[in-house]
Nucleic acid binder design. Structure first.
Length: 468
DNA sequence: TAGCTCGTTGGACAA
DNA sequence: TTTGTCCAACGAGCT
């Protein structure tokens, strides 16, 4: 049988794997290949937490390929040269991969496709990661959407899930490519081993992804609409890193949650946000670097001292719900979505730091760091992004804490210094006369005063806009 | 074309 | 303690 290279990227699975299935269906022996080329990701090479996850996911993929008689070949970039070398080495007639949508990667892949085709190779790419690719949904004017709800209404009307593609039981054997590396050679593990505790609650790879999905459906899906906002409860799917690395397909998730149509449709909407983020990133490729809403280009961000940014990063702001979230992030590589909004609002509204400070920290520390989602989320909270709200919304972290962590369990879990306080005092310990150990006695910023400052700064943008 | 509706996740305050 | 109303009036998307 002729050979075809299956270029694995962010699709580290064997079920529902369109590129792999295409190779098999077209009568090729698949040669699985992963190429390490962080320098090709533009301004956004993967962060430390992403690398730590990817290392384990690659090991898991290699193991399941070996169980089936194949193996994962690993090379170091540049990608085009690696593909050409690999193709020559194994006499491949075709190259298949699944698409990515980061602007730098889209551009790179288009060039690679042209170059490989010009040498006579068959090259095909597929969607493996989205319910709707960015160009499949458009409004009645033929333009991209800028508001989620109309995007999702249109998208849902077109939703067709593909037939499941089971992982192949056996795969043809593979002769190792010349110059092939091992996963260890890529040096993806953090040098400080700060990720050690991550793996008590995460299992990167396809098996771990299937486990997360099963656990979510058995234990949390039925109450998803009620409990997803409460960070102290296990009410969310925790599928985000698995989806980011393509360890599970959005189609399988979508099919599975339909067991419970009502709760399922609420969760499906979250997958819709994922698609919408990719839609926005594709059509507005400069948004990782600049404001989606250019009226904010003159917004008076504060020049926040590094010490205060560090207090935010390290969970020492003196606002318990903020610090609990930042410590959860540092210790697990993940943060509950409700708390992401709270810490982001605190950084961009109360400290009035540019949202890019936050986006950069999340990018480095989240195991689910995803350029589309990270950019959309930060710009949304900062008010510079896709949200047509006519006035600025400043989260009050104390109110959010009282509403969504009413018993203070989440705070007590991540901030042991405060566990001795009565639940009611954990939201704003500076109001309590009881000791709080080494925890900051007062917040690094006055919430009421900084809120008014943020509203005034926003007013400036509005005034500037109407003057134009 | 012009007008209408409504927008993931809010806060403050009055009743 | 809980619930309702206003905030101040943008702009995307549809009809």
């Amino acid at each position: 049988m002729p050979n075809a290279i299956v270029w694995f990227r962010n699709d580290l699975r064997l079920n529902d794997q369109p590129a792999l299935q295409a190779a098999l269906r077209q009568g090729f022996d698949p040669i699985p290949l992963y190429i390490h080329a962080p320098g090709e990701e533009g301004a956004w090479p993967p962060g430390a937490a992403s690398n730590a996850w990817r290392r384990r996911s690659l090991l898991a993929l290699d193991a399941s390929l070996r169980e089936r008689g194949s193996r994962l070949n690993i090379m170091r970039g540049p990608s085009l040269e690696s593909l050409q070398r690999a193709a020559a080495d194994c006499n491949a007639e075709a190259v298949f991969w699944n698409r990515r949508y980061e602007p730098a990667i889209e551009q790179r892949d288009a060039g690679i496709k042209r170059a490989l085709r010009s040498t006579g190779l068959r090259v095909e790419s597929f969607n493996d990661s989205l319910l709707f690719e960015p160009w499949q949904v458009e409004n009645k004017q033929g333009d991209p959407y800028r508001v989620f709800t109309p995007f999702w209404r249109t998208a849902l009307g077109q939703l067709r899930l593909p037939v499941p593609m089971a992982a192949p039981v056996r795969l043809p054997g593979v002769t190792p490519l010349a110059g092939g590396l091992s996963v260890g050679d890529l040096e993806l593990a953090p040098s400080l081993h700060w990720d050690q505790r991550f793996w008590m609650q995460w299992t990167p790879g396809e098996v771990g992804a299937q486990g997360s999905l099963s656990m979510f459906i058995e234990q949390a899906l039925a109450d998803y609409g009620l409990t997803r906002d409460f960070p102290g409860q296990a009410g969310t799917s925790r599928l985000s890193p698995h989806l980011h690395f393509g360890e599970i397909s959005p189609w399988q998730v979508s099919r599975s949650i339909q067991q419970l149509p009502e709760a399922g449709s609420i969760y499906l909407r979250q997958l819709g946000w994922r698609d919408f983020a990719h839609h926005v990133l594709h059509h507005f490729p400069d948004t990782p670097e600049s404001n989606f809403n250019h009226h904010f280009d003159d917004f008076p961000w504060a020049d926040v001292p590094e010490a205060k940014l560090d207090a935010w990063r390290q969970g020492r702001t003196g606002i318990p719900i903020v610090d609990a979230g930042m410590r959860e992030l540092w210790e697990t590589g993940w943060m509950h979505n409700r708390v992401r909004m709270i810490v982001a609002s605190f950084l961009t509204k109360n400290l009035r730091a540019h949202w890019q400070h936050g986006a950069a920290w999340f990018w480095d520390t989240l195991v689910d760091a995803d350029l589309a989602n990270n950019t959309l989320g930060w710009q949304w909270v900062a008010g510079t992004g896709v949200d047509a709200a006519p006035y600025i919304r400043v989260f009050n972290p104390v109110l959010q804490s009282q509403r969504f962590d009413p018993d203070g369990d989440y705070i007590a879990h991540w901030i042991p210094e405060l566990a001795g306080l009565a639940a009611i005092d954990r939201h704003a310990p500076w109001l309590s006369s009881n000791g709080v150990g080494g925890y900051p006695r007062v917040p690094i910023v006055d919430l009421a005063a900084s809120r008014l400052d943020a509203l005034r700064a926003f007013e400036q943008v509005r005034a500037g806009r109407s003057a134009i």
